[in-house]
């Protein structure tokens, strides 16, 4: 069975949040550490505030770009609603690492504007529903950390730092850092490297009692 020697992650988010860059960084880090990786990406319409996903599979025998239903080891989600939208890919008790940020879709705002009684679909409800699939729902305010890093567009790298804290994540941290330096344009490099460290530390501080983490030393 291939499943056991494989780490599959579904990346989810909203167009414009940098999912393709995140996928490139992880891919490059795999190339550097000699690990086989296959991704199934969604280009094309993806910059237009729509829902997007990337299937990312790491392991010596991976062959297909799409994660089978119910088989992802983790979902990394840059927007909370989008976590729920792809929940069928996660295996029971898989890891959910998500941004607590919600970007309200225009379809919902147009309803909320019309009806005074209506409120937006909220984080609490999302977390409640996700908990029916897994206990490992980890939410971080990636936007706050990204701002702290000096660039609100680095939410993607905050979450990459956060997932790197986990023992289960198969790519060595130093390779991920090198890949960030290589892929991210020079102007934004420093902010992205800071975002990575902030994500890593936040995750270590918040989730390590719940989830086996790597030693940061």
């Amino acid at each position: 069975m291939t499943e056991k020697s494989e780490f599959s992650t579904l990346l989810a988010g909203v167009g414009g949040q940098g999912l393709m860059l995140l996928s490139s960084v992880i891919g490059e880090a795999c190339a550097m550490s000699g690990q086989r990786i296959i991704t199934g990406e969604q280009h094309g319409l993806s910059q237009r505030s729509g829902s997007i996903s990337v299937h990312l599979r790491i392991g010596p025998d991976v062959i297909s770009p799409l994660i089978p239903i119910g088989s992802a080891n983790a979902i990394i989600s840059l927007e909370a609603l989008e976590t729920l939208r792809y929940i069928e890919y996660l295996q029971d008790d898989g890891i959910i690492l998500m941004n607590s940020r919600i970007m309200h879709p225009i379809t919902e705002t147009s309803q909320v504007a019309k009806d005074k009684e209506l409120s937006y679909f909220g984080l609490e409800e999302i977390e409640k529903r996700l908990s029916e699939v897994t206990e490992n729902v980890l939410a971080l305010d990636a936007l706050a950390l990204a701002r702290q890093a000096g660039n609100p567009l680095t939410e993607n790298i905050v979450l990459l730092g956060a997932v790197c804290a986990f023992e289960a994540f198969p790519i060595p941290m130093d390779k991920v850092r090198s890949a960030i330096s290589q892929i991210v344009p020079e102007k934004a490099r420093e902010a992205n490297l800071t975002a990575f460290e902030l994500g890593l530390k936040a995750s270590h501080a918040r989730f390590c009692d719940k989830f086996p983490c790597k030693n940061l030393e």
Partner: peptide, 23 residues
């Protein structure tokens, strides 16, 4: 797989759609 999909459909009930739109 069918059970996983039908559970997910239940969990996703009522979440707003997010079609691609103008930037």
């Amino acid at each position: 797989y069918d059970a996983v999909i039908s559970r997910a459909q239940k969990l996703k009930q009522g979440i707003p759609v997010r079609p691609p739109t103008f930037c």
